[in-house]
Design a protein around this nucleic acid. Sequence first.
RNA 1: UAGGGCGUAGCCAAGCGGAAAGGCAGCGGCCUUUGGAGCCGCCAUUCGGAGGUUCGAAUCCUCCCGCCCUAACCA
Length: 563
Amino acid sequence: MNQTTTDFIRDMVREDLRLGKNNGKVQTRWPPEPNGYIHVGHAKGFLLAYGIAQEFGGVFNLRFDDTNPTKEEQEYVDGIIEDMRWLGVDWRDVYFASDYFEQLYEWAEVLIRAGKAFVCDLSAEEVSEYRGTAVETDGQVITPRGKDSPYRNRSPEENLDLFRRMRAGEFPDGSRTLRAKIDMAHPNLNMRDPVMYRILRATHHRQGDAWCIYPTYDWAHGQSDAIEGVTHSTCDLGFENHRPLYDWFLDQLPVRTRPRQIEYGRLNLTHTVMSKRWLRQLVEGGYVEGWDDPRLPTLRGMRRRGYTPAGIREFVHATGVTKSQGMVDTALLEHFQRQELNRTSPRVMAVLDPIRLVITNYPEGEMEWLDAVNNPEDPAAGTRKTPFSRELYIEREDFLEDPPSKFFRLSPGREVRLRYAYFVRCTDVVRDARGELAEIRCTYDPATRGGDAPDGRKVKATLHWVSAAHAVDLEARLYDHLFVTEDPTQVEGERTWLDNLSPNSLVICHGRGEPCLRDAKPFERFQFERKGYFCVDPDSAAGRVVFNRTAGLRDAWAKTQGA
RNA sequence: UAGGGCGUAGCCAAGCGGAAAGGCAGCGGCCUUUGGAGCCGCCAUUCGGAGGUUCGAAUCCUCCCGCCCUAACCA
C-alpha cells in the first residue's frame, strides 16, 4: 500500500478510535442492491469501505440490500461478487438484508407497541399529498407542512392486529402500509411518518413467497448495519437526508451497536453515464452489446476492454474522497491504465491497416528469425524470435507519397528502420487498375540487420511490420468515448441524452499480427507497438483472434495533424 | 419554497491563522531501434463575491451569489 493520503472519512475513523468508540473496533460494509451489474462508481464505494477496514485492522463485509423483490435477481448477486473479486476485494462474510426480515418484523412490533408506528390505509398518492409534497404555482415551489394521516391515532392493539394481518396476506397489494410515527411538520421530508413496510406480492430471489410485506430501505438499512456490528456506514451523498431517520430508528430499538452513517460524493466520469438506470437503458435498448460491452464503465466492461484491476484501483484512489460532486476526466482513468499497462504488457507487432511492402533485393523464398524485445520496461520479460521475409505488411498510414514537412515516416526515396530488422529505402510503388496504391517497393541494407547502421547513419522513423507469409489474421476493435459530450445527461431543447451517443465509439479493423499471437488466450494483454494496448476478446475463435483496444498510445504525429 | 450539502487552475485535489502540495490535461525542450516510455521546464500575485476580526485570512465572523441533492409504498 503506497496510499499515504487520507480523507475526511478516515480522519473520522481515526478520531473515533482515539476516543475509544466501538471498543476500538472498525467494521465496514458495502451494501449493493442486486439489481444490475456494478460500475467504477460502485468500485469507489467498496474500495473505500474495504480500504478503511484494511487500514484500521477492521472487518469488511459484503451485504446485499435485497428488500425489493421486484428488481432483484440471483444473476446480479453472482455478478457483483465476481466483479468485486476481480478488482481484488475480499470480505469476511456475505450477508443479505433479506435474512433479517424476521428480526426486522419483530422490531416493527416493538415500535407499534411503543406507539411509534401505525398502520395507514392511505394510498400512495394520498400519502404523498399528506406529506406536503412540493407544489409549483406561478414558478414558485412551495413545500407545505404535512398533515397527519387520519389513521395515525389507531391504538397499538389495533395496529398490531392490522400489521399481523398484513403479514398474513389478508390485504391486497398497496392497500396499507406500516408507517413510523415521527413528525408530519418536520422540515426533513424523510421524517414525515416514513413508510416502513409495504404489501407486495412478488417472489423474492432468496425468500421465495415467504413474505408479502417488505421493509423499505430506510427501515432495513440502519438496522442491518446494527445487526452486523458495522461501526462506520459509508454511502453516497444521496442518502444525506436519510441520516436523521437512520438515527431515529436506531434510537427506538434495543440494538447493541450504534453504526454511524457517513456520506461522500459519488464518482462521475466524463463522456459516459454512471448509473444503473442509464446503463440498463443502453443495454436493453441495444445501444451497446451487453453489460460487458468494453465501452461501458461497468466493471465487466472494463475487464473485457483490458483495463487492469490495479490501474482502476490507482485511479479511484487518485480521485480522492470528498463531499463535492465532481466529474472526473476519463483521461485520468486512461492515464493510470497506460501507466500499469506500460509496465506489464508484452510488446508485439501488429499492423491494423496493412499495405504490402516488398523488399526487392531480399532473396525470394528466404526468411530469417530476428530477435525482438518483449518489454523494454522489464528486462526479465526477455526476447522472442519474429520472422522476417521479402514480403511484409506495414501500416498504410506509415507511408505517404507526398509527405508534409513534419512527416518522418516512409516515402519515396526515404530510408526508415523496420523495427528489429533492417533499414529499408523506398524505391517505387505499384498501383492497381484504379490507380490506388497497391504495394510499396523497397531495397534493404543487409549491414543494418537488427536495426543499427555500422556507418552510424540515422533514420528519423522506426516502423512496425509483420511478415506477410507468417502473419496471423486478427480483428481489432477500436473504442472511443461512448458519448460525444462530457456530460451526456445535459441536453437542450428536443435532444435526449441518447442523441449524444458517439457514432465512432466502435471501429473495427482487420489486420495482421506476429505469429505468436495465434495462441493468445482471452483476456491476455499486449502492447501493439506504436498502436496501443490490446486485450484478447472472448469472441476470439480459431484462426481469427479478436482484440479490444484498451487504450491508444500517445501519437505525437497524429496530434500535430489534429491541431 | 423547506431541509440538507458543495464552491481552491480546464478536470480531480491537498491545505484547518503564518503566508497556494500533488496528479491529469495543456504547452515548450532533451532523449529515444515504439513520433511509446522516460527526463527537464512552464502552467492560481490568489482560493465564488463583498465586508469584518487579526501584525497576518483559502483558513475565523457576517452578509450575498452560484451549483447539487431530497420531496417513491426504489435503493
